[in-house]
Amino acid sequence: MTISERPVQSRQDYDGRSPFPGAHEHPAASRTQVGLTGAIVVLPFIALVIAILLAWGRGIAIADLLLAAALYVVTGFGVTVGFHRLLTHGSFTTRPWLRVVLGVAGSMTFQGNVIDWVATHRRHHAFTDRPGDPHSPYRYGTSLRGQLRGLAHAHLGWMFADEPTSTPRYAPDLLADPAMVRLARAFPALCAASLALPFLTGWAISGTLYGGLTGLLWAGLVRVALLQHVTWSVNSLCHVIGSRPYRTRRHDRSTNLWPLALLSFGESWHNGHHSDPTCARHGMGRGQIDPSAGLIRLFERLCWATDVRWPDPERLERRRVDVARKARAPAGD
């Protein structure tokens, strides 16, 4: 669990526009890591093609769609409420059993084990959009070519690089938690369960192996792919496209991107999150749908969650960007 991290090449004089130091010296990951990551990325698309071909002339079974939606919601909340708002940022505390349940659900998304996920995300916040950020779309600068390459890096490319994040440095609390260590070790088994569950459920509902296969395709692999790309879009698109109503740290270009709000369970209100990372609600404005915050509110009412950090109106107002002043500000501020 202790992974050595390459020295972070950071510099105080970074101007917010140039490529990161050493950006083009991208160490390649091991063949095993590249192969596993490639399989996780490619196989769901192959599954989608197969699923469409099988559905041609037959349609898609309602049971498959309902099962896919149910697993998308459960595992999606495992990432947004469990991995992110609870374990990474400590936006609330919860009972030990619920902490484990959310960790299990998040682990079934094929996004990495819980300790590595948390460590990587904390590192992202420590170096947002400047040297040291593991998946910034500004890694290669702000030129058109650099931006396009940076978007590819932020969305997928960073997972193929040999730039590990130190778990002892960024997630010592989880390494000291026996339940989280066991959960991290169980990650491969939980990924297998994430695919076995829709296969067995589809088989049980339909009574046929064909029903199990379509359940595996739609509620297993296609569901995993959709959730992964929504999550990765928060890393990439939500630092390039959208609005920035709140002030963040220097060089931090996190944005609010409303079209992804529902699919991401509120994670795409990314500027709101980066302006106040430990807050349990990311959608700070009126009408900003944040299902993850709604679930945390439910946990609070059931007395399963305590010490919830809800938005402070006065602090929000202080963080709000003065649009006229922003328009006069020099580039990179």
Rank of each mutant, 00 (worst) to 15 (best):
R297N: 11
L174H: 06
L156K: 10
G242V: 14
V321W: 00
E317T: 10
T120L: 05
P164I: 00
W203D: 04
P131W: 03
P198C: 04
S136Y: 06
Q33A: 12
S236P: 01
R6T: 09
R95D: 13
V308Q: 05
V114G: 05
R281Q: 07
M180T: 06
T32C: 02
L226H: 06
T128F: 10
T120R: 06
C279N: 01
M1S: 10
T201M: 01
A28N: 08
P330R: 01
S264Q: 05
G242T: 14
L302P: 05
L66V: 13
R31K: 07
G57H: 12
P137G: 12
P164L: 04
I60N: 07
V224Y: 11
Q33C: 09
G294S: 07
R145Y: 11
L298I: 12
G212A: 09
P172R: 06
T128D: 07
V74D: 03
A305R: 12
A324I: 13
R95I: 15
R11N: 13
A119K: 00
A329R: 12
S194T: 03
W232S: 13
H26G: 09
R247E: 08
M1C: 13
N113I: 05
D307Q: 15
V41F: 15
G272P: 07
R309N: 04
R182G: 04
A55R: 04
S10N: 14
G59V: 11
F45Q: 11
D333F: 10
P259C: 15
E314V: 05
G266M: 12
V114R: 00
A192V: 13
